[in-house]
Amino acid sequence: MSKILIETKHMTKYYPTGEGKFTALQDINLSFEKGEFAGLVGPSGSGKTTLLNIIGSLDTQSEGEVIVLGKEVSTLSARQSAALRSKHIGFIFQTYNLLPVYNVYENVELPLLLLKMSTEERKKAVMEALEWVGLTDKLKSRPNQLSGGQGQRVSIARAMVKKPQIVLADEPTANLDTENSLHILDTMLKINRETGTTFVFSTHDQKVVNYLNRVITLVDGKKAKDDLKVSV
């Protein structure tokens, strides 16, 4: 039986401007089930990142409903919203966003510190996550000592280490060459298949689109298409 993890109902997001308001997303109705490997595609300014941010409870919608893991995100307090992110949602960013003063191990360990796990549990989980992305030999390296591909793999390990139900990846391959992009995508697909984690991407990279099993096209803040693919 399918399980819906994310659902948006008539969701609209607008920003006040000097003269009126700018509508970034309009009447979005979507749902994502467990284990999906889906992507939001569309040109710049189409609202992909805004939608990901709202799903990740980093932002709130102006109208409509956004239900993530059974919770309406706009009604959550700052603490509840932070708890939702720390326990259930992993983020992967275009520029990796690794903390520069931490080494690879510490960067991956960070989400677990928030979950107040024991040292032993943290160590086991961090090593497992780094094995997924093939970086167990870079534990002591600082982010500035890693290549772009390695940095993004650390970012994936950091997103996956707490075994979240949802991973939101905002343009994860935009800063990578083809070889590294494919490597990253293979890694994420493997994790998706092994763990059943739902991945939602925002991308305009065709390489990513080729990997997705569902492609939602946004144009000017509106859902233009929602295509389900059979297999990669």
Partner: peptide, 16 residues
Amino acid sequence: RKEIGTLIALGLTKRQ
């Protein structure tokens, strides 16, 4: 500021 944003995304509250 990017690090602050990342920490919020990882689950820290602004107060933290």
